[in-house]
Amino acid sequence: MTIRLNVNGSDQWVAAEPRTPLLYALRNDLALNGPKYGCGLGQCGACTVLIDGAPVRSCVTPVESVQHARITTLEGLGSSDHPHPVQAAFIKEQAAQCGYCSNGMIMTAKAFLDRQRTPSEAQIRAALENNLCRCGTHTRIIKAVQRAARELAS
């Protein structure tokens, strides 16, 4: 069946079964690369997208459940020429090694900073607690979110 999805501000049509995880529709039908397959169980956060501004694990979200929602992916935030302040802060702090988890870190941080403009370090850690990183770039990610908070406030 054909399902309409509003992704990064434009309507798109996807021919997929209703229960198809949103992740595969975004990656394979719409050729978006930001959200990554990490666990398929909502445990690691690599597939995070924003649904109406809130961070959601796209690997466990059926496409049929988000037909009337605004979906934002990493690409919808900014590009390498015009990065979103959160992306720019990650670049400035070199807050990645392999970068595979970065999508989830950036999307979760973006949604968090929308709600909390002046976060403490403990609040940043708590916001990212359920996003896993294996390269051990956590300390840089915290610095990047702190930098993004400063940039967004100024």
């Binding site: 050729a31 935030l77 900014g78 590009s79 990065p83 990650f90 670049i91 990645a96 970068g99």
Partner: peptide, 12 residues
């Protein structure tokens, strides 16, 4: 490689 990887360029 980071600007591309942090903005969704098809690098992986």
């Amino acid at each position: 490689d980071l600007p591309g990887k942090l903005t969704g360029a098809p690098l992986y």
